[in-house]
Simulated assay, not measured.
Amino acid sequence: MNTSNPIPAGVIEGFFGRSWQWPQRRQLASFLSEHQLDFYLYAPKSDPFLRRHWRASHPAEQWRELAATRETYRDCQIDFGVGLSPLDLCTDQGITDTAALDAKIKHLNTLELDYLALLFDDMRGDIPQLAQRQSELAERAANLSNAKRVILCPTYYSNDPVLEKVFGPAPEHYLETLGQTLDRAIDVFWTGPSVCSDHYPTEHLLEVNERLGRKPFLWDNYPVNDGAVRSQHLYLSPTKSDRSTAKPYIAGIAANPMNQFYASWPALAGLSQVLTSQQAPQCQTILQNLYSEQTAHYLKQDLPTFEQGGLNALSDHDKQILIERYTPLGIIDPIAAEICDWLAGGYTFDPSCLTE
């Protein structure tokens, strides 16, 4: 772990839709090391063996890739973790099946994880004693795991009313009960005032701290773009500088990046700069440091189009012009190929990904 940050700061690959490739995940290790970030959590929603089929083992080839990725992070001295979503264990039918959780944790122990995340997001909340049950499962996992740090993601991980709209009303005093029953050594993910929060006001973080009985571990949904609306955009601006003012009130911060691996770099590099230097990151400087001069020039020029207008504001003719602009640059800058792929519809949001 890097020592430049007073809190752990890193990346959680926790988005829906098209996932990163294994070589990209391994490449991220050197990127994080270079930018003084501390950890990576492997938790893509597309991995069924961490979600819908979590009881089953990964196929041999996929497990070899996961193990090799873990070793890459060890070599780079970056902490590595996995996010597991045993959602059905919270139901009446799953309560008697904790042996499956034990077996899964013991299997994951062979990776010698630094982080283990137990993720209870994206599930119905109308389950009796939901907070108590999740606390029990998290503590069971923590007792069996050899990970140095365990983090729980609650079902209601923000004050955003959209969560109750989608997953039903939260149980009364859900967060307070979770905080009271959960071992203080276990961290709790929180996305802020909204699912995708632009800012983290001090007053808000203090309120969450009081309700949970601990500092929240921020799951920062910037620059993630996996939803129906956000997938229409590429967020190339650096992370906002107010993340620095949040540091005294949080246990750590995990940035959830975009489906586009290389296009996520400016936000992540900006997060590093904010946390280590407490200076507002300059977009042009970051783009020039990450990409070739020509690509950085075009990205700065097209940034308003990608971030604000997005695909819906572009005609087919506009898209073709942009594709012709970036295609030659794909030889030296992989982000250019990603942009062309995005413009051509390669990252179109598929609602079916939400049920995988």
Results as ranks from 00 to 15, higher is better:
residue 10 G to V: 05
residue 10 G to R: 11
residue 14 G to V: 00
residue 15 F to S: 01
residue 16 F to L: 00
residue 19 S to I: 00
residue 21 Q to N: 10
residue 21 Q to E: 12
residue 25 R to I: 02
residue 25 R to P: 02
residue 28 L to N: 01
residue 28 L to R: 09
residue 30 S to P: 04
residue 31 F to P: 03
residue 33 S to Y: 06
residue 35 H to C: 02
residue 40 Y to T: 00
residue 41 L to T: 01
residue 42 Y to S: 02
residue 42 Y to M: 07
residue 45 K to E: 00
residue 50 L to P: 04
residue 52 R to W: 02
residue 66 L to S: 04
residue 77 Q to H: 15
residue 78 I to Q: 03
residue 81 G to K: 06
residue 84 L to E: 06
residue 89 L to I: 10
residue 90 C to I: 13
residue 93 Q to I: 10
residue 94 G to Q: 02
residue 95 I to K: 05
residue 98 T to E: 15
residue 100 A to T: 07
residue 103 A to T: 01
residue 106 K to H: 13
residue 106 K to G: 04
residue 107 H to Y: 09
residue 112 E to I: 03
residue 112 E to F: 07
residue 117 A to F: 12
residue 121 D to I: 01
residue 124 R to M: 13
residue 132 Q to R: 13
residue 135 S to M: 08
residue 137 L to K: 12
residue 139 E to G: 01
residue 143 N to G: 11
residue 147 A to C: 07
residue 149 R to L: 12
residue 150 V to P: 01
residue 152 L to P: 15
residue 152 L to S: 12
residue 153 C to N: 06
residue 161 P to H: 07
residue 165 K to A: 03
residue 165 K to I: 02
residue 166 V to W: 10
residue 166 V to M: 13
residue 167 F to L: 03
residue 167 F to K: 07
residue 171 P to H: 12
residue 171 P to C: 10
residue 171 P to Q: 09
residue 174 Y to K: 00
residue 175 L to D: 08
residue 179 G to N: 12
residue 182 L to I: 06
residue 183 D to L: 03
residue 183 D to I: 05
residue 184 R to F: 09
residue 197 S to R: 03
residue 198 D to Q: 14
residue 198 D to A: 15
residue 200 Y to R: 00
residue 201 P to M: 10
residue 204 H to D: 15
residue 207 E to Y: 07
residue 215 K to W: 01
residue 220 D to W: 10
residue 228 A to L: 10
residue 229 V to E: 08
residue 238 P to E: 02
residue 240 K to F: 07
residue 241 S to F: 04
residue 243 R to I: 08
residue 243 R to N: 14
residue 245 T to E: 11
residue 247 K to N: 06
residue 249 Y to G: 11
residue 249 Y to R: 05
residue 251 A to W: 12
residue 254 A to K: 09
residue 258 M to W: 00
residue 259 N to G: 06
residue 262 Y to I: 03
residue 270 G to C: 06
residue 273 Q to P: 04
residue 273 Q to N: 10
residue 278 Q to M: 09
residue 283 C to T: 13
residue 288 Q to A: 15
residue 291 Y to C: 03
residue 291 Y to N: 02
residue 292 S to F: 09
residue 293 E to T: 15
residue 294 Q to R: 06
residue 297 H to D: 09
residue 300 K to V: 03
residue 301 Q to S: 11
residue 304 P to F: 12
residue 306 F to R: 02
residue 311 L to F: 13
residue 311 L to D: 05
residue 312 N to C: 08
residue 317 H to Y: 12
residue 318 D to N: 13
residue 319 K to P: 12
residue 330 G to R: 04
residue 338 E to F: 05
residue 338 E to H: 10
residue 338 E to Y: 11
residue 340 C to Y: 10
